[in-house]
Write a protein that binds this DNA or RNA. Structure first.
Lengths: 103, 103
DNA sequence: CATATTAATCGTCTATTTACGATTAATATG
DNA sequence: CATATTAATCGTAAATAGACGATTAATATG
């Protein structure tokens, strides 16, 4: 989900596939869920996410990278911390693309 | 998406993850698209799907297996042919679960 | 019954994914 | 400045995924 404008149908399929693939792991769904449940516009630091998952910090970091590269989340630096949040509108974007492609 | 009733939240996450993971490949999205665009209640034989994809028959067969096991599609035997269709209501089911879990 | 058609499965190869601990880099703090 | 905190990256191991051609199994058909 790099750029939403001017992309071909084929690219839309690749796009949706990449988003779906990134969604396709229980720990990553959990991460998205955590971020989706944050109060409006809030961000969540990595250590909080790590606490909520039964896997190592380095593994969480890898999952965050997958989600970021697919376009689900974005991070920002806050001192020695890094905070993540869902990309604006990404839940709707995913559903919309799913609909447009398959319904 | 084996059984939609009486499953825990954790199982719902696994469920959604499995559906999303199966959706997360361009050729499998194409297959779902082909089946989604069939006239009401129609089925599509494997050879037709193979024709529409740039990969070998055996590979298509593997993708169909992934989609079937995740609960996206079902197959029925018709003479020497096998015909597939989307599982009834699966597109809505996926969207509903996505919403329930993440919105 | 022999042959053709159709699709699943097998065996194999290569690439990717998922996990971990260890290390590194960046920033805060005493 | 030395140390602590935080998160990314590295290296690695094991498992899974995705592709192929060859084979198999099941059913139709001449």
């Amino acid at each position: 989900m790099r750029d939403k404008k001017n992309i071909s149908k084929e690219e839309k399929i690749n796009n949706l596939a990449e988003l779906a693939k990134a969604l396709g792991h229980r720990h990553r769904i959990k991460i998205i869920k955590i971020l989706a449940e944050l109060p409006e516009k809030n961000k969540c630091m990595v250590s909080s996410i790590v606490e909520e998952l039964p896997i190592a910090q380095s593994t969480v970091s890898q999952h965050l990278k997958v989600l970021k590269e697919a376009g689900w989340i974005e991070g920002s630096i806050d001192g020695p911390r890094v905070c993540y949040c869902l990309k604006e509108g990404v839940l709707d974007y995913f559903k919309k693309e799913f609909d447009r492609l398959l319904l």
